[in-house]
Design a protein around this nucleic acid. Structure first.
Lengths: 191, 191
DNA sequence: TAGGTTATCTACCGTTTGGTAGATAGCGTG
DNA sequence: CACGCTATCTACCAAACGGTAGATAACCTA
């Protein structure tokens, strides 16, 4: 149990990244409330106190984990993103998300669980998810603007279906997430 | 804090029902993980130990709460249910659920949070939610059988959209749950 | 090599929580 | 009225957890 070479000292930036990475995996496997500070620390071969030197509280760690994933996702999307904000691009981006999420099921589950916990206004990540939702919807709406007569409700429809399908896929991996999405998108983007 | 007339002794069935009812309200207000055994008990004017006489553990209480709501929901649906298992009936039932859920937001939130927590196979309610999902889908599929060329995927579509829309409504009460659902259903059941 | 900075550790605290053991009292029945 | 059953209570426990205080050691620089 004791670390073999005694103490391992890292520069803060590097250590933070190591902690965030480990925490993300742990949370994805067991949810946030299922993992203790001690466990987060142990996964990096350190102690609670050591970890709390970098993140002042459990809550701060959680937020950092979320923001990190956002950054990574955003990067990946922006790379693929064609400049044109039209419906076809919107569909392509959404299909991209589906494919991406198919390959990282446990991480998707993490997000689902956290965002459900965070429905409680007192939850540390409540504001985070709310903001995120609004931004996502606004962005999608812009993409549909020139094409759909009611871009607002249309954006809600799309996001709702995607969220719901993903949720049902998490509940029952018998569902063909991608095929089901593509079929829906075919119909949706036909009109 | 002390109960005025000392001790209140109830027959088990009655007491169980009282506990379940109170627990449902508490959970709906603060989530499951946010309420302690003590709080559940206090809401009925008893102590933890007294409550644990009726439910051997916190976990057992949770399951009982879920099953009770199912029973109530089912009753309410069956009452309204016309015998014909056709698409129109399916839509009517689903609209009924939307209306019903609109009026009990916090309870819906409870279900959402619990079912997300329960994505973890180790969760006490995992099997419960999985079974529930399968039964619901099978039932809906039967209703679509005579009308839709692909009742299976259609049922998944419907449930996914409903789940997702509800989730987004919980996240942002600016969404018009009912109108958005009816518009979607109009299109879906038009073909 | 000496000294300072700080990343990390050991040890501890206070609280909360689920659960248990044994005493007590309300109710039905003989 | 006496007795037994059991619903309920009081008192307690052990474990888990988030967080803190102060000691210690790894690295950088002069």
């Amino acid at each position: 149990m004791t670390a073999s070479p005694g103490r391992r000292r890292l520069p803060p930036a590097e250590r933070r990244e190591e902690i965030l990475k480990a925490a993300t995996e742990l949370i994805a496997a067991s949810g946030f409330k299922g993992v203790t500070l001690e466990a987060f620390a142990a996964a990096c071969g350190m102690t609670k106190a050591g970890l709390l030197h970098h993140f002042r509280s459990r809550e701060e760690l959680l937020i950092a984990v979320l923001e990190r994933r956002d950054t990574l996702d955003l990067t990946s999307v922006v790379d693929t993103l064609e400049p044109a904000p039209d419906a076809a691009t919107a569909r392509a981006v959404m299909s991209g998300f589906v494919r991406r999420n198919l390959a990282q099921r446990s991480l998707v589950q993490l997000y689902t669980v956290l965002s459900a916990e965070a429905l409680d206004p007192a939850h540390p990540a409540h504001a985070y998810f709310r903001t995120r939702l609004h931004e996502g919807r606004a962005m999608l709406e812009r993409y549909l603007l020139a094409w759909h007569p009611h871009p607002g409700p249309a954006a809600v429809d799309l996001l709702a279906f995607l969220d719901g399908l993903q949720l049902n896929w998490l509940r029952d991996d018998g569902i063909d997430f991608l095929a089901q999405w593509e079929a829906f998108a075919d119909r949706f983007f036909a009109a």
